[in-house]
Nucleic acid binder design. Structure first.
Lengths: 229, 229
DNA sequence: CGCTGATTTACAGCTTGGTTACATCTTGCA
DNA sequence: TGCAAGATGTAACCAAGCTGTAAATCAGCG
């Protein structure tokens, strides 16, 4: 499977050059033109690597970086800084970047660093990417977006896949509705919504043998839900 | 001030290599050759980071890890596992490790992870979250909101978890009802309420073997309560 | 339009935890 | 030592607020 790279950069020419280069090297490329889009893509697409320009519209690369790390996203990040930009290397690295490259740079240099970073991070860490997961008589494949129960196809909607993925990443621990709205839905703050509960109910109907006495998706009253496998 | 690293590893050659590497990087290094010594050093020396081999004489790394977390020690831990060792990543992480590295690894990789973990943990501040705590025959896991007494499930309500967390953070010291109302309940000022007392009574019924002669949740007449472990 | 999936609404339980009420215990003092 | 006042222990009650869920509404898409 090809590695997925997310490029967050507002300079069109640079973006095109990077995209061409990485695609030529066999990477799958995603791009974002500003910090906010970048932040969302980084969370939704789960790239293997993020190239992050420091100066960006809407939200600087440093902010994006800090935000991602704050949300527990540990995707490796390489920062792109313009020469002379008064960015303290240490600051960037302290915010959670894995490496940085100063413009102008040769593509080969960037590629070398990319591969070094990927190699360094490749031994699956705590947030290893989830491609498939089995529990009970259920199998969920996140790459092909297919699921089965007792060998029979199980129809899960996109949102249900996202929910399951989040729960599986945090299996065993309680997650609040807020966390879910934030991470799965991307809502910053929503005062009151029953959306989460409704989806939990639907998921239970699909994955639990006895939805009213769930074995996997457990309610923790006044706190949230947890997934037990 | 230099960061202090505790290396718990029984392979001499590995220990020496790691010590040299970390000292070269400016860390202060402590070493232990078996699990028991490691456990003691971890508590007495208060290192900033612990590198813990999984296979150790006397006590496995997993046990050391669980023990430390159970005692409320939240020092970041990186586990070192041999390739092919049938250690469930999830198990290790659930026991409280922050990351793990599979042998053989390059020193640069370990260093990168070390710094990543230190970075991640330094953010969470001095009031690092308490994820699990053991006392007597009770285990309380705040992440999963689960508790056991003598291995049997113990049903604690959300408020009871909050109370326990506060007491555990302040174990050994007397806390007043006001402090509790303020911190746990969020009430600014409430003139007179028996709420705290009621909850203490309920907690005692659940965690004390003899609720009328409490061993953990002690009344300090006219002052408040204290938790002893 | 009609379809599918997502979200909101509405309402029927259910759980929790603050209050009350009364029993006990502590403490300070005569 | 005995007593009174105040502090604490504890059981029971029930309102407030959560949660489960079906049904209605909404949004996107070909």
């Amino acid at each position: 499977m090809n590695k997925k790279v997310l490029i967050v950069e507002d300079d069109e020419a640079m973006t095109v050059a990077l995209r061409d280069g990485f695609e030529y090297e066999g990477y799958q490329v995603l791009t974002a033109g500003d910090g906010k889009v970048g932040l969302n893509l980084a969370q939704e697409e789960g790239p293997d690597l993020i190239l992050l320009d420091v100066m960006l519209p809407k939200m600087t690369g440093l902010d994006v970086c800090r935000d991602l790390r704050g949300k527990g996203v540990s995707t490796p990040i390489i920062m792109l800084t313009a020469r002379g930009q008064e960015i303290d290397k240490v600051l960037g690295l302290r915010l959670g970047a894995d490496d940085y490259v100063t413009k102008p740079f040769s593509f080969m240099e960037l590629l070398a660093r990319t591969e070094a970073v990927l190699r360094r991070c490749s031994r699956s860490g705590p947030e290893a990417s989830l491609s498939r997961f089995d529990f009970g008589d259920i199998t969920i494949d996140f790459k092909s977006h297919e699921a089965t129960k007792e060998g029979q196809p199980l129809d899960l909607s996109p949102r249900e896949f996202q929910l399951m993925e989040f729960f599986l990443r945090h299996r065993g621990e309680v997650v609040t509705r807020e966390q879910l709205l934030d991470s799965v839905w991307g809502y910053d703050t929503i005062p009151f919504t029953r959306t989460v509960d409704t989806h939990i109910a639907k998921l239970r109907k699909k994955i639990e043998s006895s939805p009213s006495e769930p074995r996997f998706l457990i309610t923790v009253h006044r706190v949230g839900y947890k997934f037990l496998s």
